[in-house]
Design a protein around this nucleic acid. Structure first.
Lengths: 350, 350
DNA sequence: TTGTACGCGTTATCAC
DNA sequence: GTGATAACGCGTACAA
């Protein structure tokens, strides 16, 4: 038989290495996995054999027995059905927001030797395929980002029993860990700053209202202003892109020409708003003060630079990674939530 | 023994389904993989059993024998060693360029049932980890994007025998497929347009000169102008971000105050250049004409909208996917290259 | 400390 | 058309 197939025609296997090293498969396996109980001398021999053969463990075989892949998925999802020209991909690869999240996540994953794969779920077809992929055990867990209220993914993930962490409080209570920023507290900071600088006629440009975070920022802003006597706060909805921020500001100007302060739900839209104001001949912040949200580097690209509400995205992302790893190590651990406090960063737009 | 472990405590396996359906494992496997030779009646029964048990094939076991994962990696790499605050992630998640590539790739991958995982290789540590991941057989092949001249990845990939496709002509000849745009032809279009509209003192803002594409655009631009008598064309190097485009334009204005036409190596930098020109009190295009590159939606966000050189990124990405799939199906097929022709898109900036 | 032997869940090659 | 059964490459009790 070819139990000892002599020529490593294809990729070398554990057995080849074992033969070269003159030891058993088990021993090779041990040194590769860093198990202590093995003679240092042999260790050297084995390492040499590994080197010589160019051996690399076969992930399929390995995870078939360990039930681990040492990789997690970062999935960016969006519930709505959209056309092919959908701005979804454009939004993702345009908003510095995501870069900060990725950075924070990799910061904790990489040192622990777990790889991150990024997957997009921009429509139902994508989601179906994604779910199959995940269920098949390609990854040990998933970090889910940017899901809106209708996104079925959180529930699907818990139903599938996959370790997962959300980047937002789930809309419907679910036994799932998540990390979030205190959105309304952030909005309150914005409101109070605008009030403090003397704005009397404030409005707001919100994010997509099917996202909890958008809702919270809007209601938080309104509540804070109500406490200062502003019964009504006009708002226009955007979708977090610079373009919609611009359009929203235009609409606001048309409907409330005397607006003198605007809270915009993210920096990218704020960038657009500032542009629109400039086009309309309004000075920022003298005529209209603008406060953004995120403190992404878009805030610095604006002129004037954006006063904004900073959320510590890198830290939040790192926390997500930690929560996920914890859950992977102990699937029975209780779902946890961690809330971060946003802070006001004053620059020149307000 | 528990060859017939009765209770599917964990995830259901082929064997469970077989038992429920009252057939053999082999049969279940056949219907799952769509092999014809199976009684339609049984097919139904099996399907029902699959449904009932909620069975999902175990990818590890499957690919252990098939040596296929039905997934490919899209890796975005960068050779330089950078600091933690490196703009790399910022660049990726800020440039619409990537969104278009991803979109084009998924357009061909998804219908064929292969999933795409996106991986970042922003430094050596990341690259090492990535390579291990790839060698372990997590994916069937890789599409490599945005590597610069020093990037060791193309060679590492070919050495490892992984099916791969590059998004640019490799700097050193390598037996590897790639897709590219005719960069210098595009630059020539820009040059001729500027000349045609009467520019006499043209300059250019190039991309990072360690990228072949940047070099080609620069030399193509210079060559075309030389043919029109412009012996010298000033240039400043940027790194494809709006911010560097802005700075480069500022520098250009300082050193060549009478510049009346600029070719900028991508739209994002062109956006910054237009901003800088505006700040400097120059009218675009009347005082200074600006031509960008890519025709990303950044071109539309600029005011005035950018005249630019369009490269069909979606099509190019789709072609990359095709080439890769072809190579995966037949690893011995010859490396292929496909070059796309850029076109001039005239808007208002030039 | 090291080796033996079994099992992980599938696919594929056989007979039937 | 269907069912045994042998790989696939590895980790790991268990025995030595």
């Amino acid at each position: 038989m070819s139990k000892d197939r002599p020529a490593p025609g294809g990729t070398p296997t554990l057995e080849h290495v074992a033969k070269v090293a003159g030891v058993s498969r088990a021993t090779v396996s041990r040194v590769i996995n860093g198990i202590r109980n093995v003679d240092p001398q042999l260790q050297e021999i084995v390492r040499a054999a590994v080197e010589q053969t160019g051996y690399v463990p076969n992930q399929a075989a390995r995870s078939l027995v360990t039930r681990r892949t040492n990789s997690v998925a970062l999935v960016v999802s969006e519930a709505e059905h959209r056309t092919f020209d959908d701005p979804f991909l454009g939004r993702i690869f345009t908003d510095p927001f995501f870069g900060r999240l990725v950075s924070g996540i990799m910061g904790v994953l990489r040192p622990r030797g777990v790889t991150m794969v990024l997957m997009l779920a921009e429509n139902d077809a994508a989601r179906t395929q994604l779910l199959g992929y995940l269920k098949q055990g390609h990854v040990d867990g998933v970090i889910l980002i940017s899901s809106n209220v209708d996104d079925p993914l959180p529930r699907l993930l818990t139903d599938a029993g996959l370790p997962a962490v959300l980047s937002q409080r789930p809309v419907t209570p679910l036994p799932i860990s998540y990390v979030d920023a205190a959105q309304s507290a952030g909005a309150k900071l914005a409101a109070e700053h605008l009030i403090a600088r003397g704005c009397r006629r404030v409005a707001t440009i919100s994010g997509p209202l099917d996202m909890p975070a958008s809702q919270d920022r809007l209601s938080g802003f309104r509540d804070a202003l109500a406490r200062h006597g502003h019964a009504y706060v006009p708002s226009v909805e955007g979708n977090f892109t610079q373009e919609t921020g611009e359009r929203a500001m235009l609409q606001l100007l048309e409907e409330y020409p005397d607006v003198d302060g605007v809270f915009v739900a993210n920096d990218l839209m704020a960038l657009g708003a500032v542009l629109a104001l400039h086009d309309a001949g309004r000075r920022v912040p003298d005529d209209v003060a603008v406060v953004g949200f995120d403190d992404s580097n878009a805030a610095l690209m604006s002129r004037p630079p954006l006063t904004t509400i900073r959320q510590p995205l890198e830290d939040m992302a790192a926390e997500m990674a930690h929560l996920l790893l914890g859950r992977i190590d102990d699937p029975d651990s209780k779902p946890t939530s961690v809330i971060f406090e946003p802070t006001l960063v004053v620059r020149q737009s307000a």
